[in-house]
Amino acid sequence: MRERILGRIHRALEHRPKTLLPEPLPAVSLPPAETLTLFTERLSGNGGEVVRLENLEAAAEWLGHFAQTFAGVAVGQTVPPVLHPKLPVLPPEEAPLGVSWALGAVAETGTVVLSSQEGRRNQLLPPAHLVFVPEARIYPTLFEALNALKPSLPSAIGLHSGPSKSADIGQIMVKGVHGPGRLVVAVISGK
């Protein structure tokens, strides 16, 4: 089958002139100061929440308050221990909160970049998803983010740009259909 299909394609293209591959479109980049502002604006526009934290210490303190309202948590494998909420650890299908450490983020689309290395289920099954991302890893454009990821791609990457949604029921927007209905991104500035 493979040879027959490839043969047919080869014959189809025999007399077709080969066209050149266009150079990548130049991405319009941003000064670093504007990157975080744009990220916050775009992700909020998509229905996500953004929290800005000064450093890991401040993040741990904020997490202490944030986590209080949840009864349990599923934590990604790559989340630094200091950012594990002091909550009972539950399997992702039972946890009301999932916590992830992002590979990076994209300002122009309001997106966090998540790796399969930390576990896919805890990114998807809990109804609320908290994602930590260092400010230095927020790329202005998707083009820059993809180029940074390319040298070491994990088995799967999830680009999450807001809460799960659908308008399949009578064109009315519903949140939290399969994936998390709440996405909170905590941006950590310093070390």
Binding site: Q77, E108, S116, Q117, G119, R120, S155, A156, I157, H160
Partner: peptide
């Protein structure tokens, strides 16, 4: 939209050390 809410970029099956997939 500027991007679909979820985009999956799949390179292959679960790798050693990954908790699921």
């Amino acid at each position: 939209q500027r991007l679909g809410t979820f985009v999956s970029l799949i390179q292959g099956p679960r790798q050693p050390g990954e908790p699921d997939g």
